[in-house]
């Protein structure tokens, strides 16, 4: 995230000044968008996340944590909003069990990719977020822990649970990664 804005702007924001809020929005919009995009992987959804996250930030401005940077606070709010979007997009249909077992090839074809994407979307959102950030984006656990406001140990355990759940889901589809 960028350097933090000066304290005066933050204080005006906390007191409800719309101009200060707009100034913060202009400064952090791109960073929040890119962060959300890394989690939700869809530009339209990431835009929705940005709008919702800044709205929540303004609504909860009195709870701004002065011990943290504005960027880190926004990232955390955006992560929570993204999690809500993942929850809403989570498929609920039961698995169709594959007739034949499919070994994951060196260059996965589209049917394997679709199955993996579906298996991923079936994970609980909190596991989807850590799996995306840790396995796909390869962010350090400390950064993920900071963004999610969790201890590093919890992040590690969620990554472990996510990989275990994914393997189980994929094995039910006959895919062995």
């Amino acid at each position: 995230m960028r350097d933090d804005p000066d304290r005066g702007v933050l204080e005006r924001f906390v007191h409800g000044d719309r101009d200060a809020f707009e100034s913060l929005f202009r400064q952090f919009e791109l960073e929040v968008f890119r962060w959300a995009l890394r989690i939700v992987r869809d530009p339209g959804t990431a835009e929705d996340v940005v709008v919702e996250a800044f709205w929540r930030a303004y609504r909860g401005r009195a709870r701004f944590d002065w011990s943290r940077s504005f960027g880190a606070w926004m990232r955390r709010i955006a992560t929570n909003v993204a999690k809500d979007h993942l929850r809403a997009a989570r498929p609920r249909a039961a698995w169709a069990v594959a007739d034949e077992r499919i070994a994951a090839p060196a260059a996965p074809d589209s049917s394997v990719s679709e199955a993996v994407a579906l298996a991923f979307r079936r994970l609980p959102p909190r596991l989807q977020v850590v799996a995306t950030l840790a396995l796909i984006e390869e962010l350090p656990y400390t950064d993920i822990a900071d963004a999610l406001d969790l201890p590093v140990g919890t992040v590690k355990s969620r990554v472990f649970r996510a990989t275990r759940a994914l393997r189980l889901e994929l094995s039910q589809l006959g895919i062995r990664p």
Binding site: A46, F54, W55, V116
Partner: peptide, 27 residues
């Protein structure tokens, strides 16, 4: 690594890096 490779293929990064519209008006 193998699982991560599958996930990266299944969930590729988006090719854009900025919003397509003015989001401030929506906020």
């Amino acid at each position: 690594d193998s699982l991560a490779r599958l996930l990266r293929t299944a969930r590729p990064p988006a090719s854009v890096d900025r919003p397509s519209r003015d989001l401030w008006s929506l906020v």
